[in-house]
Design a protein around this nucleic acid. Sequence first.
DNA 1: GATACACCTTTACGTCGCGTGAAGGTCAAT
DNA 2: ATTGACCTTCACGCGACGTAAAGGTGTATC
Lengths: 253, 253
Amino acid sequence: MEYTVQKLAQLAGVSSRTLRYYDEIGILKPARINSSGYRIYGQKEVDRLQQILFYRELGVNLETIKDIMTSPSYDGANALKEHREQLLEKRKQLDLLISNVEKTIASTEGRIDMSNKEKFEGFKKKMVEENEQKYGKEIREKYGEETVNKSNAKLLNMSEEDYKAVTQLEARLWETLAEAFKIGDPASETAQKAADLHKQWLTYYWAEYSKEAHAGLAQMYVDDERFTAYYDKEQPGTAEFLRDAIHIYTGQK
Amino acid sequence: MEYTVQKLAQLAGVSSRTLRYYDEIGILKPARINSSGYRIYGQKEVDRLQQILFYRELGVNLETIKDIMTSPSYDGANALKEHREQLLEKRKQLDLLISNVEKTIASTEGRIDMSNKEKFEGFKKKMVEENEQKYGKEIREKYGEETVNKSNAKLLNMSEEDYKAVTQLEARLWETLAEAFKIGDPASETAQKAADLHKQWLTYYWAEYSKEAHAGLAQMYVDDERFTAYYDKEQPGTAEFLRDAIHIYTGQK
DNA sequence: GATACACCTTTACGTCGCGTGAAGGTCAAT
DNA sequence: ATTGACCTTCACGCGACGTAAAGGTGTATC
């Protein structure tokens, strides 16, 4: 079965403009162009569009969708399983919102008390996800598409549980780093502990860890003002110190 | 408890830019501006922001949110009840998508057959809603904010069931209209039946029906080329015929 | 073959809801 | 006074299309 633009648009519930745009940006090319110059889509494109719409529904931007789906490691069957997991996550968030609105109703009726913080339960999760997407972009600019495609795919799998774990890792990293800085030796046991915590933190963002990449990222913390500022905010010199500790940890120095 | 921009932004999980933008477009004004020119938000604004975020979560554009919330008939407690209903609807749609992805997985594993149409179940609903929002805008341009605010509020309450009913009404309207046109008399029983069906169709979009508004809309069908084209697509002259039938129905002629 | 209508193409400008940054002011702790 | 966090306004840019113009194609009907 073949489809021209409007036929496929109607089938999928998108606009023909969307399909032309997707062709233009290379995310969904037609199977062929007929003698009149018309786009002709086939079964493969139907299935691909479905996947795109799932990613879109999950809030993934088109550039990232394209990266993921053009990666050699992309596997349609696995992607579907991931979509399912993400959709279940999304439903959890929606359940949070439903619970929130029900509590708010009870609160306005004077049945319960509700803090201002609770009033935004379920909305906040979104912001966290957006920040994580943004951070992924920073890494891309430094390390290229291949690494980041993988990390984005992994990123989308991060559960609430993982997120908590990451947050805790980060907190421990800061503590350990501050302590190690006081000791003053990037080779100390404490500093090496910090480097290890940093590695563990990274494994939540990187699908594959390598010492080279770790060392390179540490160098970036010192070379890039924004990262330096971030790490030095509590104690100037922290970015350099962490870079040194990581270089020792990874055997680059 | 009072909040400056960042405090409220953090509480709610939005950006400070968002809050400034909301002030700028008049959707969420601060309680006051302090002597330094800083925006200061209070409890009322916290609650209002929560409502805005619920509407936003439900896909309502900011202009419409503003209209709804500034309408004299706006009632925060009722809005919360509506949010709840809409969120439950949204969950139904999400369940459709989850069901879809599960079926697609089963299909790729060869366990079931799945049509291309089924592959887009759950995505299509969205497009319908978007079209309805757009249509609401058409009416606004002709009838002003007051009527449309109410119709938008009603629009958001439209359930799947209502939607089906509307679709069926529309189908019957077209049938009856075609039949009445053949008879050729806008005063005929059939034509009056069509006008009545049209009224019933309208009650899904208008919170309040009036004969004047109905007659005015019918005139608009003839005056505005786009509506005329829509009604004349199967039989030229249909827009005028329907206008006449409605004028008789509403006693305007 | 001509006509009408629905659909196709490309090009191009615009919209919405912010994100980002610049330039400069304010607050609070040291 | 200094520093760092936060505030303001202004302004440009972005992603994902929506809309329209100008012109070509397919199909049914006369």
